[in-house]
Design a protein around this nucleic acid. Structure first.
Lengths: 178, 178
DNA sequence: CCTAACATTCAAAACGTTTTGAACGCAAGG
DNA sequence: CCTTGCGTTCAAAACGTTTTGAATGTTAGG
């Protein structure tokens, strides 16, 4: 195959691997996804192990993860007993599914802990010495800040999850800032 | 000190540690930040090592990182030879500085690689066999998708970086979707 | 049912990251 | 200058994650 195609393939796959790592996945996942993305035809586990020079076991486990993240789908090839995979190539779909199963949960948990802390601090008020009460007030201030931040994050995520089939890019630049 | 204050402190510090890990930092950084955030007074390296029960060496290195990320500042205490630190408590400032030095760079690099790939593919056109040309077209399609996605991300980041002193939360829900 | 062709699992090895503490460097006060 | 009190560095150890391949499941065809 032509040098250029090989080169572009390699750098794209490597780049996606790097991004995967950056986003908290492992880079084999990224490279598998990239490899699938740049293949018009679905690939089998063996194809993938071959192309990336990694063990079949690793391919198997990482493909399961990719499926769970909604980044790849199994594809049935008639007359074939092998499993074939295809990348989910709609980037918006990918990011929505990742946000949905990860970022969202994390923000949710953070908010819950913060909420509980606020409640605890408020109901303990009566039992506190004046000094402690001052510290409690300080905690409340700081925790409320965090809460505000995560509430914003939550709204932003829900917005992306709920609507964007393809967001109007220009709209984002028009967000009004208070 | 009162049970409640201790408990809230612990769970908040642990929670911030967890978030730090989630966002690709190590959790000691997060716990250091959390500890500083919940202390009205600046803390010295020894105070921090003490409170978190970790070695002074680790505190020293992680505090340097926190400073580089713009998440903590050194504070001079008159008459003291020790270094004292304070958390940057404006969450918007923190997130802006992190985006600025990390997310932004990463998106920038991804876009550059993608752009280069497109150029390479286009200039190689002439040298390609018909089959290769078809694959090249396929690559271009996929790469253009990625490019679109990262261009959007870039705009979103620049928006946050450029404007938000404190974003009007409601505005985000009003983004119009195409 | 048996076999062949696959996929999956999992314990051990390779590899990577974080933590520690002792050694070192540096500056301020005597 | 010397000492003391601090911060920083870095090599080694602890710890965590990823990869591998052999063993084990699973399924379809004969």
């Amino acid at each position: 195959m032509h040098e250029t195609l090989i080169g572009v393939n390699e750098s794209t796959v490597a780049g996606i691997g790097r991004l995967a790592r950056f986003f908290g996945f492992n880079d084999v996942m990224g490279r598998l996804y990239g490899t699938l993305l740049l293949n018009p035809e679905p690939l089998s586990l063996d194809d993938l192990a071959d192309q990336l020079q990694i063990s079949k076991g690793s391919v198997s486990m990482n493909m399961r993860d990719l499926e769970r993240w909604g980044m790849a789908k199994e594809v049935w090839m008639r007359g074939e007993r092998k499993k074939y995979y295809q990348a989910e190539s709609d980037m918006w779909q990918v990011i929505r599914s990742v946000i949905n199963s990860r970022e969202r949960r994390e923000v949710q948990m953070a908010l819950q802990v913060l909420g509980e802390s606020i409640t605890k601090l408020q109901s303990a008020q009566a039992e506190l010495t004046p000094e402690e009460r001052e510290l409690a007030a300080y905690y409340l201030e700081r925790i409320a800040d965090l809460q505000g931040f995560f509430q914003f994050a939550q709204m932003a995520l829900e917005t992306v999850l709920g609507k964007a089939d393809s967001i109007d890019f220009e709209a984002v630049t028009k967000i009004e800032i208070g």
